[in-house]
Simulated assay, not measured.
Amino acid sequence: MTDGHQPTGPQPINPPKTKGRPSPDYSAPAFLEAGAQHMRDRASLRDAPDGERSMAKTVAAFNALYGKDLTEEEGWMFMVLLKQARASQGKFVADDYEDGAAYFGLAGEAAAGARG
C-alpha cells in the first residue's frame, strides 16, 4: 500500500536514542492505526468513500488470464503473504507490517461478505 509517501505509522517500543527527534512508536496498536490510516488515505487518493477496493477486479482479471478461481479474500491473503515475505528479509521496514495489518483486515472484510 505504499504510494511514495513517507510512512507515518508505528514507532519502536524500545526506541534507539535519537538526538532531538521523537522516537518512533512500534507498538502493536500503532501498526494497526497506521494500517487504518493507509486505507483512509487510499479513500481520498482513489476518490472512493470506502477506500480502495480493487481486489475483486484484480482477481477477476487474474482468473481470466490464468484460468484460476481465486476469491477476493484469497487475493488479499496473497498480499498478506507478500508483505510477510518482504518483512522476513533485509532491514526492518514498518510499512511491511502496516500494510500487512491493513491487508488482513481487508481479507476479513471480504470473507465476511462472501462467507459471513
Rank of each mutant, 00 (worst) to 15 (best):
K91M: 05
D50P: 07
Q6I: 15
L106C: 02
D47C: 09
I13M: 08
S44T: 10
Q89V: 11
F31Y: 11
Y97T: 09
P15T: 05
A28M: 02
A28N: 00
K17S: 06
L70S: 13
G75K: 10
A110K: 03
G90L: 05
P12C: 08
L81E: 05
E73N: 05
P22Q: 08
R42Q: 11
E109A: 07
P24Y: 02
G100W: 02
P7E: 12
V59A: 09
F92N: 14
L32Y: 03
E98G: 13
D3L: 04
G67E: 02
R86F: 01
P16T: 14
A110E: 02
A112H: 10
R40Q: 11
S88A: 11
Y66V: 14
A60G: 06
D50V: 13
R21Q: 12
D96N: 06
W76D: 02
L106M: 11
A34Q: 00
Y103L: 07
K91L: 03
Y26I: 10
E109H: 00
A61W: 02
L45C: 04
S44V: 09
E73T: 15
R86Q: 07
D25A: 11
I13N: 10
Y66T: 15
M55Q: 09
S88C: 07
S23C: 09
G113R: 03
G67K: 01
A34H: 02
R21W: 00
A36F: 08
K57L: 09
G51E: 14
D96V: 03
A94M: 12
M77N: 06
A114L: 01
A61D: 08
G90P: 05
M55N: 05
Q89K: 07
R42A: 14
P16K: 10
Q84L: 14
R115G: 01
P15R: 03
A107S: 06
E33Q: 14
H38E: 14
Q11T: 13
A102N: 13
G35C: 00
R42D: 11
P16L: 09
D69P: 03
Q37G: 13
S44E: 12
Q37I: 07
R42V: 07
G108T: 12
M77Q: 04
K68W: 02
D95Q: 10
A30G: 08
S54T: 15
V93W: 09
D41I: 01
M1S: 07
R21G: 04
F92Y: 14
